[in-house]
Computed example of a mutant assay.
Amino acid sequence: MSAFVELVEKRRSIYALGTDSEYSKKDIENRIREVVQQVPTAFNSQTTRVVVLLDEANTKFWDHIYDVQKDVLEGGMQEWMSGVVTGAKNGIGTVLFFEDLDAVEKMPAQGARQEAYKQNNNANAQYAVWLALAEMNLGASLQHFNVGYEKGFDKGTKEMFNLPDSYEMLAQMPFGSIEQEAGEKEHIDTDIQVKVFNK
């Protein structure tokens, strides 16, 4: 098995996070910067913007998420969200993933194609950062709280950190030391996922 495949297998959704890491926060920040800069984007448009929250900023963000979501979610989802928020606040930090819509508008594509390119650009960054964190023996998960640019759901986050109005938040990735390993993961047959034709 190659080192890359081992890394892909190592990357799992981790919710119980801590602050015990052999890497400094500056090391983590620098690794995220290096990786994001190399992520491929449609037309080399480089539309993705990443915000790294540490310490007080991380706590403040997740307190905000909880305050907004606690009256929206019901039953089991409320309990699940509380667990995610607690884990995120106990971790080292959170990576926020945005698309700069001003940059998106400059791509030579419109409508559904532009939307697809935007989503693909951001997804590439999300996965690359997640793999980088896994390589540093850090756990993470991908969350989608308060997303909804047109309805202003991410407005509070942008105001909190003085981010441009053109930023659309697409995801959040809390990360930290792995305090509880992920469970077994079931896989469907690869022949269902991958089709190969040679004529």
Rank of each mutant, 00 (worst) to 15 (best):
V35H: 01
G156P: 09
K158L: 12
R11Q: 03
P108K: 05
W80A: 13
K151A: 12
E105C: 01
M107C: 05
F161S: 05
M136V: 05
K199T: 15
T94Q: 11
L96H: 00
E159C: 01
M160S: 04
R12C: 04
Q78W: 13
A57Y: 09
V50H: 08
A182S: 14
F43Q: 01
K70R: 05
M173S: 10
V104A: 00
Y117F: 15
K199R: 14
D55Q: 10
F153K: 12
L170M: 07
L170T: 14
E79C: 00
I28H: 02
W80S: 12
M81K: 05
L17G: 07
T86R: 15
K25V: 02
L133Y: 03
A132V: 02
P174K: 03
D165S: 14
V52C: 08
M169W: 04
F98H: 02
F161E: 02
K185D: 01
A140N: 04
A123L: 04
H64P: 02
V72L: 12
Y149E: 12
V36E: 12
V196G: 04
N120W: 13
K199C: 02
G139K: 02
N124I: 03
T190E: 13
K106G: 04
S13H: 10
F61Y: 15
Q110P: 06
V104C: 00
I65D: 14
D63C: 08
A134D: 02
R12W: 08
K151Q: 10
K60A: 15
G176P: 10
D63P: 01
E9F: 13
Q46E: 15
V5A: 07
G148L: 12
P108I: 09
G76I: 04
K151E: 15
F61W: 14
E22P: 10
E184Y: 05
T19H: 07
E135I: 00
V39C: 14
K118V: 10
L96N: 01
A116T: 15
D63Y: 08
P174R: 01
A132W: 06
N44S: 07
G83M: 10
K89M: 12
D67I: 05
P164A: 05
K158Y: 03
W62C: 06
R33G: 09
V36H: 08
S13A: 11
S141T: 07
Q172P: 03
R11S: 08
A109C: 11
S166E: 12
R113C: 06
K89E: 13
Q193E: 14
I188K: 14
F145G: 02
I188L: 14
G183E: 08
K151M: 11
F4V: 07
G152C: 05
A3C: 08
V194L: 14
R12P: 02
G75F: 13
M136P: 04
L73Q: 15
T59M: 12
E105H: 06
I14C: 02
K199G: 14
S13K: 01
N137M: 04
N122Q: 12
L101H: 12
G156Q: 02
Q180C: 06
E159A: 13
I14N: 11
Y117G: 06
E56T: 09
Q78V: 07
A112F: 05
I92E: 09
N198F: 11
V52Y: 12
Q46K: 07
A42W: 04
K155F: 09
E29K: 13
N124A: 14
I28G: 00
E186R: 15
M160Y: 11
K155M: 03
A140V: 01
L7M: 09
V129I: 13
M81T: 10
Q38E: 13
Q37M: 12
Q126A: 10
D63L: 09
L138C: 07
Q46Y: 08
